[in-house]
Write a protein that binds this DNA or RNA. Sequence first.
DNA 1: TTCCAGGTGGCAT
DNA 2: ATGCCACATGGA
Length: 295
Amino acid sequence: MKDKVLKIGKFEDLDLEQTFDCGQCFRWIRQEDGSYSGIAYGQIGNIYIEEGCLTVRTKGEIGENQEVDRAFWRYYLDLDRDYGEIKRVLGEKDAKVAKAITSGQGIRILKQETWETIVSFIVSQQKQIPSIKKCVESLAQAFGEKAGTLDGKAYYSLPSPKVLAELSEAELAPVGLGYRAPYLIKSAKQIVECGILEKEPLGEFRQWKDLDNFVPVPELTGVGPKVENCIRLFGMNQIESFPIDTWIKKVMVQAYGFNEKELESMRKFAARQFGEYGGIAQQYLFYHIKKGLDF
DNA sequence: TTCCAGGTGGCAT
DNA sequence: ATGCCACATGGA
């Protein structure tokens, strides 16, 4: 199959490095020319900006499904949300976020597959981002399906809940997940048993909107408050979600004067201060402090 | 070598 | 409801 090039359009408030390397996703890899290659919903792509125009090189014949593909990338990259307005609202309300926005003005919250975020963020606990990327990639190569090749590199989808649910800890051991391996297997079993796969199958260009009606997210094994909020924010389009990890804790202490242990107060504060845009504010703050900048 | 990492489950108060 | 602590592996 040949490559085809899709011109998506010109967008404000979009920076590929900030979006793909801000820690929200683990399967997009920066190429030497500054573009990003990866896979989402089984679609392989190489994404870049050329003369100001967002462009995706992907698989398929020219002219085939062009409008569907464009709609998909618009969806995945969250291009129909007005980040300019969100930044204005957040910036007016909160001076710390206003400062953070100066470092990450081009971040967009990807609309990732729910299942991918469940896997990724169960794996992510007590790991650094490069290590998370390696584990997720290794998982895909070992147990996923080959989705195709781009620039001579093979891309694999993540193993489905069914595949993962059938695996033993011994079989999963080579992936190097450590103590997270049983969490992942148990969560996969919970997803299979809850019946959502029959209702909202993988492969559609959409997230699991009513997962909570099948298994409430916090009931998944290995999913505590932090991972739950990441799944909601990155994988369920619930952008008010405000994950509090070690870095956001630092922000809350340094910039807002909280005591390190006052988690519940931090949550309440975030909900009141950032409201429906909590997750986007969180991502600006996260990106800013990770760059080593202060407030 | 030692220490730590986008936390959570299990147990004790 | 809250406070400890072990947890497996890789990288600095």
